[in-house]
């Protein structure tokens, strides 16, 4: 059967999200932690809207009712060597 991948970084499928919501991970905050969706290098920029829409559909809520987890820095992945102080070897 075809898979619908929602989170490209972590290969999280629509079915993964359905199962997680059915188990009780009904907030994006907890669903994210359980499935790994939105935790890859893009930090959810690619998938959070799709995951959010599916959670709304599955839980019978408006999309606006589903809180989006706060964005964490950095905005885009940054090499530690770039952030490190110059005197670090």
């Amino acid at each position: 059967m075809a898979k619908t991948i929602l989170c490209l970084c972590r290969d999280v499928t629509a079915e993964d999200v359905r199962r997680a919501v059915a188990q009780g991970y009904g907030d994006l905050e907890t669903l994210k932690r359980f499935t790994g969706a939105c935790t890859g290098p893009c930090q959810g920029k690619t998938c959070v809207d799709a995951v959010r829409r599916l959670v709304a559909e599955l839980t019978g809520r408006d999309v606006e009712e589903i809180a989006v987890p706060p964005a964490r820095p950095p905005t885009t992945p940054v090499r530690l060597g770039t952030l490190a102080a110059k005197d670090a070897s």
């Binding site: 950095p74 090499r79 530690l80 952030l83 490190a84 670090a88």
Partner: peptide
């Protein structure tokens, strides 16, 4: 970043995803 690169120099080329 400074301290972990000091401890593991190879991390200089590795990207921080989230903080």
């Amino acid at each position: 970043a400074t301290k972990f690169v000091r401890l593991f120099p190879r991390l200089a080329g590795v990207r921080m995803m989230r903080h």
